[in-house]
Design a protein around this nucleic acid. Structure first.
Lengths: 348, 348
DNA sequence: TTGTACGCGTTATCAA
DNA sequence: TTGATAACGCGTACAA
C-alpha cells in the first residue's frame, strides 16, 4: 500500500492542523489543547505515524543523542576487564539524562566501512586508555567541535582526563607489606604494551601502557629492587603463570607478591597454593582494582579499590558539562586501600 | 572568530564549484578531476571544514549507520556472561561492512531521557534474550519499518530469530553420562526468571528464561527424575553454592552433575573438591557454552560448545539482509559436544 | 493556542 | 566531469 512513510506534515494535514502544532504535540514543548492533541494522535494512528524521525530531529536539533566510546581493542578483550565494564555502567548512567546512549567504536578498526570518530553522528566522544595513534583522529574530532574526554590516557592539553592515583595507591599497598615486616617482595605486573609476551622486566622496557608503568613505579617507590614479572594480560590464568615464575626459585622466594590487578592476584593465589604454600601465612598477596573475583572465595584480596563506576560517571558528567557549553576539568580519583585476608606478617 | 561552522556549501563557494561537486569530492561516489578535487580540498582546509556532517548525511541517506543492541539488564550483568561478549564481537564484525556500529540500549531503562528503541536514530535493532515487556516497543519499531532480529528469545511471528538447539544439545551431554554408566545425576540450573532466588526446582515453577527451561527439558529427556537446583546467576560463585546444595546429602549423592553453563560447572567442580571428592573420579561434571573459564585449568570441562561468535555474526548478517530489502530467515545453531577431563565412569 | 515560513547540511538525480 | 534542483523530515522563531 504505502508508497512512502507518513511524515509529520501528513499527520498535520490529516488532523487539520499546522505541522508545527503536530510537532509540538509529540515533543510536548508547548501546551496544546486536549482536543487538538487528540485529533493529532488519531491522525497519526490512522496514518501509521509512530513519531518524529530521529534522523531528521537530530539534524534539526544539532544533537544525535549518541556518545561514542572508543576502545583500543576487540570488544571481547575490553569487556573481559571487569573494571571497564563497571566504568561503562557509570558512563551509561551519566549520559542517560542527556538522552544519550553509547556507541561502541574501535580505535584502528581494520574492518572496511566500520564507523569512526569522524563518520559517526556523535555528540561527544569518550576515549578509553587511548594509544598515541589516536592523536590524529582526536584532532579531527576536536576540530569539529565535538567534546572529548579521556579516561586513563594522555590526550594532551585541553582535553579533560579522568585518572587514578595509580602510583601512590600502589605505593600504599607496598607500604602495608613493609609495615607487616616483608622484605622480599615481588611484583606481578600487567602487560607492558600491546602484544607483550609475558616475562621478567629488566628495566629496559618501553612502556606503552601507563597503568603498568605507574603502578610499577609506585611499588618501586617502596621496594626499589623488587623483581617484576609482567603477564600477557589481566586474567587469572596469566596470574597463575606469573605466580609460578615468581615462586619458581625456592631459594629466593618472596614472602609477598603485589599484583597489579585483582585477576592477576587471584592467579597468584592459586600459584601459591599450587606450590604447597599458604596464603597469607607463607606468602602474602595484594591485588589492585577492588572488584569481586568470581570463584575466589573464601579469599578476600587485600587490594586497592578503585572507583570504577565513578570514573565512568565522571566522564559522562564531563561530557554533559561540555555539551552544555561549560568546560570540564580533569579529574583524578583516589583508590581506597582495603585489607582482606590475603596479607599477613611474613613467616619467621 | 567563527560565528558558524562551515558547510559544504561554503566550501563549494570558496572553491568555485557547485555544492554537489564538493559533496562528491568527499564521498568519492563519482569521479572528479584531480584539479577540482584539489581546489575543494584546499578550500575545505582554509575554512576548517572537516567533512560532511553525519547528521545531515544520515537524514539525506535515510541511514544512520547505527544498530541498536537491546539488553535486559545493566551492562555489568550482561557482560558478566562471556557468551554475550563473544556474541557482541560477532555482531560488531558483521555490521561493520554496513558502515554500522552498535548502540547499547537497555530495556526498561528507568532513567528519564534515556534513549530508547523509538527515540534513537537506528537503522536496525538486535534484541538479546528479550523479555515480554519488550513486545510493545518492538511493535513500534517494526511499525517504523526498522529491521529487528532477536537472539535467544521469542519475538513472535515475522521476526527473524537466532537460536540454539539447547534442548537437544543438553540431552546429548546427559546421554554421554548415561553411556558412561551414571545413574544418579543432578542438574545445576540457570535462574528460572529474573530475580530468582536460588533453590531446588519442584516442577511448579513458571519459567521466564527460555534457555533454562529448554536445557532442563533436554536433561530430563534423558534423566526424567534428575533433581535440579537453580542458581541465582551464571557464575562460579553461584555454581559453588549449587554444588554444595547438591552434594549436601551424602546418602543421595549423585555421581554426575550437569550444569547449565560453564561458569556454573566451574563452581560445581570447586564444590566437589571442597567436599573432599575428585573430579571426575568421584563426580563427573558437565558444562554448557564452551567458553574458556579463567582460572579453571587444569580442568577442561566436558561441555557443549555453542557458536557464540557465529550467533552474533548471523544476527548481523540478518540485519544486513533486511537492510538490503531481502528478508532474513530465522536460524538455529547447533552446539558441538566436547569431551574434556571432567567426566568419567561413576565410581564402583 | 495555533499557523507561517524558513533553515538545518547534505546528497540523488538528471541534464548539460 | 560538472552543475542545478529538489527533496530528506523536522523544529522553532515569530506573528496572529
Amino acid at each position: 500500500m504505502s508508497t512512502r512513510r507518513a511524515t509529520i506534515a501528513d499527520v498535520a494535514r490529516e488532523a487539520g492542523v499546522s505541522p508545527s502544532t503536530a510537532s509540538v504535540v509529540f515533543s510536548g514543548k508547548t501546551p496544546v489543547s486536549d482536543a487538538t492533541k487528540q485529533r493529532v494522535r488519531d491522525a497519526a494512528a490512522s496514518l501509521g505515524y509512530t513519531g518524529p524521525d530521529p534522523r531528521a530531529a537530530s539534524l534539526r536539533r544539532g544533537r544525535s543523542g549518541i556518545v561514542g566510546v572508543v576502545f583500543e581493542e576487540h570488544l571481547g578483550r575490553t569487556f573481559q576487564d571487569p573494571v571497564k565494564i563497571l566504568m561503562m555502567d557509570g558512563l551509561t548512567a551519566a549520559v542517560a539524562p542527556l538522552g544519550a546512549g553509547l556507541l561502541l567504536l574501535r580505535d584502528r578498526d581494520e574492518t572496511a566501512g566500520a564507523p569512526t570518530l569522524t563518520t559517526a553522528p556523535l555528540d561527544a566522544a569518550v576515549l578509553v586508555g587511548c594509544s598515541g595513534m589516536l592523536r590524529e583522529s582526536l584532532d579531527a574530532v576536536r576540530a569539529r567541535g565535538i567534546p572529548v574526554v579521556v579516561i586513563e590516557g594522555d590526550a594532551g592539553e585541553g582535553v579533560p582526563q579522568i585518572d587514578l592515583d595509580n602510583r601512590d595507591a600502589q605505593r600504599r599497598a607496598l607500604a602495608h607489606l613493609r609495615a607487616l615486616g616483608h622484605e622480599r617482595v615481588a611484583i606481578a605486573a600487567l602487560p607492558v604494551r600491546a602484544g607483550w609476551e609475558r616475562g621478567w622486566l629488566d628495566g629496559t622496557e618501553r612502556f606503552t601502557i601507563d597503568v603498568t608503568r605507574d603502578r610499577l613505579a609506585g611499588a618501586r617507590d617502596e621496594y626499589p629492587d623488587a623483581p617484576a614479572f609482567a603477564a600477557a594480560a589481566s586474567s587469572i590464568d596469566e596470574g597463575l603463570l606469573a605466580g609460578r615464575a615468581i615462586l619458581a626459585d625456592a631459594d629466593h622466594r618472596p614472602t609477598a607478591i603485589a599484583a597489579q590487578s585483582d585477576l592477576l592476584a587471584a592467579g597468584v593465589v592459586r600459584a601459591v597454593e599450587e606450590a604447597g604454600l599458604r596464603v597469607p601465612e607463607d606468602v602474602s598477596v595484594t591485588g589492585f582494582d577492588g572488584i569481586v573475583v568470581d570463584g575466589l572465595a573464601p579469599y578476600e584480596l587485600t587490594t586497592l579499590v578503585q572507583p570504577a563506576v565513578e570514573k565512568g560517571r565522571a566522564a559522562g558528567e564531563a561530557v554533559a558539562a561540555m555539551l552544555a557549553g561549560e568546560d570540564a576539568a580533569s579529574l583524578r580519583f583516589t583508590c581506597v586501600f582495603r585489607v582482606g585476608n590475603t596479607t599477613a606478617p611474613p613467616p619467621d
